[in-house]
Design a protein around this nucleic acid. Structure first.
Lengths: 231, 231
DNA sequence: GCAATAGTTATCGTATACGATTTCGTACTC
DNA sequence: GAGTACGAAATCGTATACGATAACTATTGC
């Protein structure tokens, strides 16, 4: 559950799929960092397949926003500049909010207990802080909440956003010290809302704010003062 | 503005792009209706290109949900069964709500006037009802609202949803008589909210309900009575 | 007459090959 | 010495070819 976030159903076994998984994994785990030039022939050789399936894989990754493809030039791992980051986080805020609200009525006591256990692990993790582990736990926490999501389309959008963020190696938690602590508290508050059967609107708003707060924290440290980053 | 809804930047000129546009157009305009079997070699011949770019185009369409692709079997135009329709409309409700709320502060008096003009055209269209024209005007109306949307990702999600729905030939308006009338009134109410500078929450909620109401109308006629269509 | 199986056909998946385009380096001119 | 033009190398885009897989059909046995 902790590794690469895989989305919808994909056929296994095909070289194309194999290439897709391989390249995606390398992007998400940071082997190919933003700006890395993806040369079809080179990747094909590395994976022991021809260029055709590799090309197909790259275009799939492009559709997911992990890769930027330019005609007759080639593909590069798409970094997320501040503007893109803002777009992605804003979108995530919306779809995560919706996913949480839709899932909430289907989350049982056992699920809440699991999520709380993960969150307590995160709380402990705050002491001798490890951003990588913290980020992974954070994803686990939300995965528990979302696993009952009744709308697979929305869930898919959430996963895409996560992969997008993962391609940035640097977790926001690393840069904004207080954020990790706040995050744990927000998780607990969210669980309380779910337990008490709060209405969908309240839960959605809380879930949105949880993501927005991370975005705000990022913006606060990224843009020293007055200047708004975009629009 | 009224034709196929095109999304983000795509390279022109390539055979692959050409195939993508051609097949997409045929799906959206109904030449290839849901369930239609898309044979790569046949399409390639029709378009005067080889199968490779066609294959690439098909897979792009698959990523957008317009086509269903099965390994070693082939591609078919993906119809939307009631469940898929529900997922799509629910997702649209959310992203359109967000898109409207985000756009609202950027919509000027001139834009409102244009939107209102379109809406009045829709109102007239109610008299001698033409579902196709009505649907197109409906899209125009919302396009005016969204053209200032500051987040291209969200706008893209809206467009994808629209294309998905377009692949169903049958507009909801055709099946649920009262819906078209209500829709026009909801548009006007939405414009009033935007004009008066209502807060984002209010606008978002109104925009969501606008879409949800269409979904509810569909469900009401699709499932005669008690039975919930899914989950 | 029906079911199971073997053979055939249609279609996909991938490899290889080559033309097209871009990029980079070098030489030449001003 | 700087800028431009030419050429070579790298890489992409697409066509063609062939092996692999699944769907279809006919035949055989019960």
């Amino acid at each position: 559950m902790t590794e690469t976030v895989t989305a919808a159903g994909t056929q296994t076994g095909s070289k194309s799929e194999q290439a897709y998984q391989a390249v995606k994994a390398r992007i998400v785990d940071g082997t190919y960092s933003p700006g890395y030039r993806l040369v079809l022939a080179k990747i094909a050789e590395d994976l022991g397949v021809s260029v055709v399936p590799v090309r197909e894989a790259i275009r799939r990754l492009e559709a997911e926003g992990l890769v930027k493809f330019e005609r007759n030039v080639g593909a590069t791992v798409s970094g997320i500049d501040p503007t893109e980051y803002l777009y992605t986080m804003q979108t995530l805020s919306i779809v995560e909010g919706a996913a949480t609200a839709l899932s909430a009525p289907l989350i049982g006591a056992a699920d809440v207990a699991r999520a709380r256990a993960v969150n307590e692990e995160m709380r402990e993790c705050l002491l001798h802080f490890d951003p990588v582990r913290f980020t992974r736990l954070n994803q686990d926490f939300h995965s528990v909440l979302f696993e009952h999501c009744p709308n697979p389309h929305i869930l898919d959008l959430v996963h895409r956003g996560w992969n997008r963020l993962a391609s940035l190696r640097s977790s926001t938690f690393r840069f904004v010290p207080g954020r990790a602590h706040d995050s744990v508290e927000e998780h607990e508050a969210l669980l309380k809302l779910i337990e008490t059967g709060a209405d969908a609107d309240t839960i959605e708003k809380a879930a949105r704010l949880h993501r927005s707060a991370t975005l705000d924290a990022y913006l606060a440290q990224a843009t020293p003062d007055h200047q708004t980053p975009q629009q």
